[in-house]
Design a binder for these strands. Structure first.
Lengths: 347, 347
DNA sequence: CGTCAATGTCGAACCGGTTCGACGACCAAG
DNA sequence: CTTGGTCGTCGAACCGGTTCGACATTGACG
C-alpha cells in the first residue's frame, strides 16, 4: 500500500510538500501540484486513517450508541439509524455502531480511546447512565431523545407534549368527549422512556382542561397480546369514540382487530396514531397520525454534532434542546362522533 | 488525556517497559508491573486507538456494509446487524456500519484507508460490484448471502434450495398436490437477490419430481398491495391447498387476509413461511416456518472473519461456503388437504 | 571462579501522516 | 544596489503507541 512517502518520491518532492499539495493548506506551484496528484493517482494512494487520526486528532468517525429493544418496534429504530448514517456520510463521517448492553462502558471505551470525534446517543432514559460519561468526554455529544438533565449536550426530540395535546385537541374540536390513549408497554417506562409519559401527561392535562375524559393504558409490544389488549379496551370503554395510539405495535395490530369486531374507522371510532410516514407506508396504516420524523431527528443530531466537531467557535456555543413540532398528517380516520354529545364549553 | 509516556513517568520506568508491562509481551518484574498498572489506573490511561492502529496495523474494527432497502423487510435486517455487532463485540471488535448507496466506493474507502481489519457484506447480489474490490483488499472479507462468484471470500447463507425442497416435500407428504409459492417482489430479483430464485427454482424442480403443481409468483413488499395480491392469488388458484411464503411482508399480511376471507388455516389452507423466529414472534405469525436464522448467519460470518484477521495460518486456509440447513419449525399450520386426492406415487 | 543463559529494563526506531519554522529564489519598491 | 516581502519547498519534530536489539544483573552450572 502506497504511503505519502511513496507519492513524494514518485513526484520528486519531499513528504511535506506532497502533503501540502494534497491538502492545499499551503501554496504549491501548479507544476508540483500536478506531479503530486498524478503520483497519488498512479499509486492509488489513500491516506492511512490511523496515522491521520494520530496526527490530526480527528478520526472522521462518529459513534452511534443504540440498543435494539424488542419492545420498541424494530423498523422505527432502523429509520433513526439511517438518518444518522446517511447524514454523517454526507458530511464526510463514518459511523461506529455500538449496541453493547453496557452502554456506559462502551461509551467510555470509544471516547477515551479517541476512536470517534463525537457521539450520538439513542434510546435515552430519563436518568441515563451514559450522560455523565458523555459530559466528561472530550468529544461533543448529542442525543435523540430527551433526558432528565440536558446539560452539556445537544438534545433533539419530538415534542411529545405537544403531540399529546394536538391529538386531544383534534378530537375535542370534532366533538369527542371520551377517548382512550394506548401507550408503550410499561417496561419501556420502567427503563426510563420519558417520551411515554410526556405524551400521556400532556394529553391528560389537556383533556382535563377541555372536559374530555381520557382513559390511559400501557400497551403491549407484540402480537397477539397487543391485539387482545385492543379488544379488551374497546369492550371496557364502549362509550369512548376516539383512540390515540402512542405504540407502533398497537397501531399495526389495529386494522385486523377493527376488522374482527366489525368496527369501522372513522364512523364508529376515530383514530390518531403517533409514528413515522415510513412506518405507516410499510404497514399501510390508514390512520391520521402525528409524524415522529425519526430520520429528521437523527439527521439534526448529526449536523449539530459535526458543527461542534469542526468549529471551535461552534463548540463554545450554548447547548441546545430542540423539539420538532408534531405535524398531524390527516388520513381521514377522524370524524365527529356518531352521536355527538352537546358541546359543553371547556371548564 | 494520559499517554503511555505519562504512565511510564508516573511509574518511574521507560515507555517501552510500560508498554510491555501492560501487554505482557515480555517478562516484567512483579514490582514494576504493579507500579505500571497502578499508574495506568490512577491516570485513567486508555491507549489511543489511532496510535495503536498505526503501530500494529490492527484497528479492532470490522466494517459492515449493509443497505436498508424498503422492499426487504426492515426488522429482518436488524437481526442480521445485531448478530454481527454482538458477536464482534464478544470478540473484541467494534463495528463500522456503512450504508452508502455506492457500496463499492465505500468499501474501497474503508479498506484502503485501513479503518477496518475485515469486512462483512450484506445484501449480496448475484453479480455484486463490491466483490472484486473485497478480493483485492488486504483485509479478509465475509458475506451473508451467496454471490455468483464465491472465490476469495467466506460465504454464509441459508440453504435456500433445501428450504424450497423442504417446504414442497412437507406438503407433498401430507398429500397436497397443488401449491402456491409467493416470493419477494420482482425488483429484489432484478437487484440480483439470488436467494429468491434459488428457493423458487429448487421448489419448482422438486414439485416437478413429485408431481405437484406449483404456481409461483413475485410478491409485493408493502401493504395494501401485498394483501390484494394474496386475495388475487387465492381467487386465481381456488384448488390450491397449500401456500409457501418466501416474503416477510406477505407472511405478515396473511392473517388479516385469511380473516377477511373466512379462510381457516390449516383446515382450508396449509401454510409454510420462511422467516426468523424473532420475526414470527413480533408479528405473532401462527404458521409453521423455515427458520432463516439471521443472527446466526451474522455471527458465523464475524467469527470466521476474526479467525482470519487474528491468525496468519487461518488466513491461508481455503475459503468456505457454508450453508446452514433450513430447520422447519412446526406451528401446526399444515395438515392433509381437506379432500385429499389419491396418493399417486411420485413420478 | 569463570562462563553462559535467563531475566528485566532501556533507548531508539518505526508506523504514516501533519505542521512548524527556516530558507532560497524571485520580484518590486526605495 | 540593497531591502523586504511573497512564494514554494524542505527538513525536522510530533502525534502515541509497539517492538527490536542491546545491555546489565543475577543465578546456575561446570
Amino acid at each position: 500500500m502506497a504511503t505519502i512517502g511513496d507519492v513524494a518520491r514518485e513526484a520528486g518532492v519531499s513528504r511535506s510538500t506532497a502533503s501540502y499539495a494534497l491538502s492545499g493548506k499551503r501554496p504549491i506551484s501548479e507544476e508540483v501540484r500536478r506531479r503530486v496528484l498524478a503520483a497519488a493517482e498512479a499509486l492509488a494512494y489513500t491516506p492511512n486513517a490511523g496515522a491521520r487520526a494520530l496526527a490530526t486528532s480527528r478520526t472522521k468517525v462518529l459513534g452511534l450508541l443504540a440498543r435494539f429493544y424488542t419492545d420498541e418496534f424494530a423498523p422505527a429504530m432502523m429509520q433513526y439509524i439511517q438518518g444518522v448514517t446517511d447524514t454523517a456520510r454526507d458530511l464526510g463521517y463514518d459511523t461506529l455502531l455500538v449496541t453493547d448492553e453496557d452502554g456506559a462502558r462502551a461509551l467510555r471505551r470509544i471516547t477515551d480511546s479517541r476512536m470517534v470525534d463525537g457521539v450520538v446517543l439513542m434510546n435515552i432514559a430519563q436518568d441515563d447512565p451514559r450522560l455523565p460519561i458523555l459530559r466528561a468526554a472530550p468529544q461533543p455529544g448529542a442525543t435523540v431523545g430527551l433526558p432528565g438533565d440536558c446539560s452539556g449536550i445537544d438534545v433533539f426530540d419530538l415534542d411529545f407534549e405537544e403531540a399529546g395535546r394536538a391529538m386531544v385537541d383534534h378530537l375535542h374540536r370534532l366533538g369527542h368527549r371520551e377517548l382512550i390513549l394506548i401507550s408503550q408497554p410499561e417496561h419501556v417506562v420502567e427503563r426510563g422512556g420519558a417520551y411515554v409519559w410526556r405524551l400521556r401527561d400532556a394529553a391528560l392535562e389537556r383533556a382535563r382542561q377541555c372536559g374530555v375524559t381520557l382513559h390511559t393504558v400501557y400497551g403491549e409490544s407484540r402480537q397477539p397480546a397487543v391485539g387482545r389488549l385492543l379488544h379488551t379496551l374497546l369492550d371496557t370503554y364502549p362509550s369512548a369514540t376516539g383512540l390515540l395510539i402512542n405504540n407502533e405495535a398497537a397501531a399495526a395490530a389495529l386494522p385486523s382487530v377493527a376488522h374482527e369486531r366489525g368496527l369501522r374507522v372513522p364512523e364508529d371510532l376515530s383514530v390518531i396514531g403517533r409514528y413515522s410516514a415510513e412506518f405507516a407506508a410499510a404497514f399501510s396504516l390508514p390512520y391520521s397520525f402525528v409524524e415522529s420524523a425519526p430520520d429528521r431527528l437523527g439527521s439534526m443530531a448529526v449536523r449539530q454534532l459535526v458543527r461542534r466537531v469542526e468549529s471551535a467557535t461552534a463548540r463554545r456555543e450554548p447547548f441546545v434542546v430542540r423539539f420538532i413540532s408534531p405535524e398531524l398528517v390527516s388520513r381521514g380516520s377522524t370524524t365527529p362522533p356518531r352521536d355527538p354529545r352537546p358541546r359543553t364549553p371547556a371548564r
